[in-house]
Simulated assay, not measured.
Amino acid sequence: MTIRVGIIGCGGIANFKHMPSLAKIEEVHMVAFCDVNVERAEKAKGEYGKPEASVYSDYKTMLTEAKLDVVHVCTPNISHAEISIAAMEAGCHVMCEKPMAKTTDEARTMVEAAKRTGKKLTIGYQNRFRKDSSYLHSICEENALGDIYYAKAKAIRRRAVPTWGVFLDEEAQGGGPLIDIGTHALDLTLWMMDNYKPKYVVGNVYRKLADTENAANAWGPWDPSKYTVEDSAFGFITMENGATIVLEASWALNTLDVGEAKTTLCGTKGGADMENGLRINGEDHSVLYEKNIELQVGGVDFYDSTGDDPADIEAKQWIDSVLNNTEPVVKPEQALVVTQILEAIYESAKINKPVYFS
């Protein structure tokens, strides 16, 4: 069986993640490419498309003409909901790049559309498929850490502000590092805890370094006049069961304590963190212990297999879920809660009060 896939948005994330991973799956035929910049769509077709593949500048036309099974939505956040819903209503299963949507209301309409149409919907949280994440999740499922009542979700860069596309545009994206990379750290943490019931959120958002001229930055200086989002955001999340999550997200922060898409978990039986590889800690027979989990396969000088790329594993399990009619690993209801919490952090910072969930 072959799966006819269409790509909507042929920019960076499609080229660096979605299309290369899909191209490795035998059952996948990428047969339609859509982008407002037709040259980008043509380039994507040339590199990844079947000979009969079509190119479009309008996604609505593509959904009408291309007879697709699956659509990957790789556009700015502002259009995630609109395009995903249209694709599901056109009979397609949808993989939407993270975050799920710009707002909670939009994310909720996506979940409702998936239920209404009976189509599968998943969100691109590929960090779940890293080796350390998969291992940690497996021991959490076994209750090895006990009741996890404190956690930290970390997405901190010292100076790595994305200067391309619309990353700095609040209108198009809905925010900066919180919604861009903080979303990965929060998704990992909620998934490990298997806790999707927030009670209230307190948030602080800062735009302190964005006006720096000629700033040191991984991708060259940013343009302060175009930098309309925060450079740092922090949230204190209390769950219904009393558990606490601290979320840290920044593209530019004067700190050496950096790390991206990492989680720290503290439970009644033990703890875990990703600060220096994956570490598990606890107490056994009145003695404290720390285990460093070795996830690399080595032992031969000329060969060291690190396993599959998380993006490849994500794409494979997603297509398998379509082929076998099973649930994808990332469920839309889970991604909705991530969006709810992110939006609440922004709102709390704006009104200078806690935001409660009804």
Rank of each mutant, 00 (worst) to 15 (best):
T2N: 15
R4M: 07
V5K: 11
G6E: 10
I7M: 14
G9H: 01
G12D: 13
G12W: 14
A14V: 00
K17F: 03
P20T: 01
P20C: 08
S21K: 08
L22Y: 05
E26Q: 11
E27C: 10
C34H: 07
D35F: 10
V38T: 12
A41G: 03
K43R: 15
G49E: 08
P51K: 06
P51W: 11
S54V: 12
S57Y: 10
K60I: 06
L63M: 08
L68T: 03
L68R: 02
L68Q: 06
L68M: 05
V73W: 02
V73G: 03
I78P: 01
A81R: 08
A86H: 02
A87I: 09
H93Q: 04
E97H: 00
D105M: 13
A107W: 11
R116T: 09
K119A: 07
K119W: 05
T122C: 08
Y125A: 04
F129M: 04
R130W: 14
S134H: 09
S134A: 15
S134V: 14
H137S: 11
E142V: 10
E142D: 15
E142M: 14
N143V: 07
G146V: 10
D147H: 14
D147I: 14
D147A: 12
K152G: 04
K154D: 04
A155N: 09
A155E: 07
I156K: 03
I156A: 11
V161E: 01
V161G: 00
T163A: 00
F167C: 14
D169R: 05
E170V: 13
G175W: 03
P177V: 02
I179N: 08
H184D: 13
L186F: 11
D187S: 13
L188T: 03
M193L: 08
Y200M: 13
V202T: 11
V202P: 01
V205F: 10
R207C: 13
K208V: 08
D211Y: 15
N214Y: 10
A215K: 00
P221G: 03
P224K: 00
T228E: 08
V229D: 10
A233Q: 05
G235C: 06
F236Y: 06
F236I: 11
M239Q: 07
I245Q: 02
L247D: 03
E248Y: 12
A249D: 01
S250G: 07
W251H: 09
W251T: 02
L253Q: 12
D257K: 13
K262M: 15
T263K: 10
T264K: 12
G267H: 04
G270M: 09
M274V: 05
L278M: 07
G282S: 04
S286D: 15
V287W: 02
L288K: 12
E290P: 09
K291N: 12
E294Y: 10
E294Q: 15
G299D: 02
Y303M: 10
Y303P: 08
G307K: 01
D312I: 05
A315D: 10
A315S: 14
K316C: 07
K316F: 02
D320L: 08
S321F: 01
N325E: 12
N325P: 00
T326A: 05
V329F: 14
V330Q: 09
E333L: 06
L336C: 01
Q340W: 10
Q340L: 05
L342S: 11
S348C: 04
A349M: 05
Y356M: 09
